[in-house]
Simulated scan of single mutants.
Amino acid sequence: MSTVTVDGPARTVTPVRRSWFSDVGLVMSRELRPVVREPFSVVFGLIQPLVFLGLFGPLLAGSVGAAGGFSGAEVWQWFVPAILVMTTLFGTSTTGSNLQFEMQTGAHERLLVTPLSRSSQLVGRSLKEIVPLVAQAVIVVLVMLPFGFRADPVGAVLGLAMLAVLGVGLGSLSYALAIAVRKQEWMFWVVQQTVLFPLLILSGMLLPLETGPQWMKVASAFDPLRWVVEAERALFAGDLTSGAVAAGWLAAVLTAVVGLAVGVRTLLRSTD
């Protein structure tokens, strides 16, 4: 049996140039595939905000609304934007549990050996959570319109963009926590729950902070969610140039920067 050898000039393989944004898109599309195949998770995520609106909302309208002289529609203008922030908080702060599952199956390690940048992996994973959250937010707004809630179109778009920025930071911190406690997975939920509820209460999402004690008012000033909640209320009301909106953007951007910095550093250390 003879072999034929074909001589010719050696071909050089040119590496494919990818941008950081394309890496983010690849990771995001990878993470979204299970959601597209099983959209029930998006519907299931609506249970919590709708329960708060259906059960806690009327109590809020009856107590805070009567005491403050607010009409039912004005109470919804105050409460619905806060519910959207709460949905973002609960949705993105639990994303680390998905990473824990991938670490168990080895999918996380296989992703790490790809040429994708570490920051793009974190941002792509976090943005994946924003897509169903935006869909849920739109549904919540549409459901509340017949009850008197009004959303400024431009303010609503800006509000959802702010929630996306905030979600990137919260999601990155959640992933960093999952990596840090990967040898003790139960610690993820201990830390997550311990941090989540103080942030939730001090943000003024559920009840006005004006009636709280002085120490709580001081502590709330250090809660970034408080500024985002106030900004969302202003944006949905159409007050696009208020100081609350600027403070909300600052809080959301700082959360994203800190989250990405902590997340990337934790990810790099875990692979050393």
Rank of each mutant, 00 (worst) to 15 (best):
M86P: 05
Q192M: 13
V64F: 05
M28G: 03
V24D: 05
H108N: 07
V75H: 02
A219H: 06
V64S: 01
G259I: 15
R37Q: 12
R226N: 08
T114Y: 11
F149H: 05
S41M: 11
L32D: 04
R150H: 13
M1E: 12
V36A: 14
Q192G: 00
R269E: 09
S220D: 04
T105N: 15
M103S: 04
L173G: 03
F222I: 11
F222Y: 15
A221Q: 13
L160V: 13
E210V: 13
L50D: 00
E230T: 06
D7E: 14
F197N: 00
R265I: 12
A73Y: 04
G204T: 07
A107T: 07
R11Y: 05
T211V: 14
L84Q: 09
M216K: 02
I47K: 02
A251Q: 02
M103G: 03
L260S: 05
R150S: 11
E74H: 12
P153G: 08
R18G: 01
V85P: 03
R226A: 08
G8E: 04
P198V: 08
P81C: 05
V157L: 14
A137I: 08
I139M: 07
I201F: 14
A73Q: 10
P9K: 15
S242M: 06
A251I: 03
V141L: 14
A135Y: 02
E38D: 12
I83S: 13
T88A: 10
F52V: 11
S29Y: 14
S19P: 00
A180K: 09
G96W: 03
T5K: 02
L160E: 09
W189L: 06
T92W: 01
L160T: 10
I179P: 00
Y175D: 03
V143I: 15
Q214F: 10
V190C: 02
S22H: 13
D7K: 11
P115S: 12
S203C: 08
A261I: 02
E31Q: 11
K128F: 11
W20S: 11
S93K: 02
V257C: 12
V134Y: 07
G68N: 09
K128D: 05
V42H: 12
G45I: 08
L46V: 06
